[in-house]
Amino acid sequence: MGASVHRLTRLDLTVNIRFPGTRANGIQVAAMAEALAATGLNVDVVVPRRWPWKGVDPYEHYGVARTFGVQRLASLDTIDMLPARAQRVPFLVQSVTFGLRALARAAVTRDAGILLRDHYTLQVLTNGLRRADLARVSAEVHDLPAPGVRRQRVAAALALLPAVVTINHALKHDLVSEGLDPGRVLVAPDGVSLARFASLPSRGDARAAAGLPLDTPRLVYAGQLYRWKGVDTLVAAMAHVPRAELLVVGGQGDDLERVRALAERLAPGRVRFTGNVPPPAVPALLATADVIALPNSAGREISARYTSPLKLFEAMASGRALVASDLSSLREVLRDGENALLVPPDDAQALGAALSRLLQDQALAERLAVRARDDVSGRDWRARARQVAEFLREHLEVAA
Score class of each variant (00 low, 15 high):
Asp336Pro: 09
Arg151Asn: 00
Arg227Ser: 12
Asp232Tyr: 01
Ser138Tyr: 02
Asp133Pro: 06
Val149Arg: 15
Ile114Tyr: 06
Leu160Gln: 15
His6Ile: 00
Asp215Trp: 07
Val291His: 10
Ser138Thr: 04
Ala155Glu: 00
Thr67Ser: 15
Tyr62Met: 07
Ser95Gly: 11
Arg305Glu: 00
Gly223Arg: 05
Asp80Thr: 12
Gln387Gly: 01
Asp346Asn: 14
Ile302Ala: 03
Thr274Val: 08
Val220Arg: 10
Ala222Glu: 06
Ile17Lys: 05
Ala244Lys: 10
Pro278Tyr: 05
Trp381Ile: 09
Ala369Gln: 10
Leu200Glu: 08
Ala244Val: 10
Thr121Ser: 13
Ala146Phe: 00
Thr288Cys: 15
Val137Gln: 08
Arg50Thr: 14
Phe197Lys: 04
Glu390Tyr: 02
Arg49His: 14
Leu247Tyr: 07
Thr67Val: 15
Ala156Gln: 14
Asp174Ser: 04
Ala385Asn: 08
Arg184Ile: 00
Leu160Ser: 14
Lys172Gly: 02
Val185Pro: 01
Leu334His: 09
Val187Lys: 01
Asp118Pro: 08
Val220Cys: 11
Gly55Asp: 05
Val220Thr: 11
Val108Tyr: 01
Arg136His: 10
Gly55Phe: 06
Tyr226Met: 04
Leu129Cys: 09
Val185Arg: 06
Arg265Ser: 15
Asp80Arg: 14
Val154Arg: 02
His169Met: 01
Leu225Ile: 08
Trp51Lys: 12
Leu327Tyr: 06
Arg386Ala: 15
Val47Lys: 09
His142Val: 02
Gly69Asp: 09
Leu392Thr: 01
Pro345Gly: 05
Ala198His: 11
Ala399Met: 09
Leu200Pro: 09
Pro145Asp: 02
Asp77Ser: 05
Ser4Gln: 12
Gln94Val: 02
Val137Ile: 13
Met1Thr: 12
Thr274Arg: 08
Pro145Gln: 01
Leu13Phe: 08
Thr233Phe: 04
Arg227Glu: 14
Ala298Val: 00
Ala369Met: 11
Gln252Pro: 00
Arg305Cys: 03
Ala383Lys: 01
Glu332His: 06
Leu186Ile: 09
Arg105Ile: 02
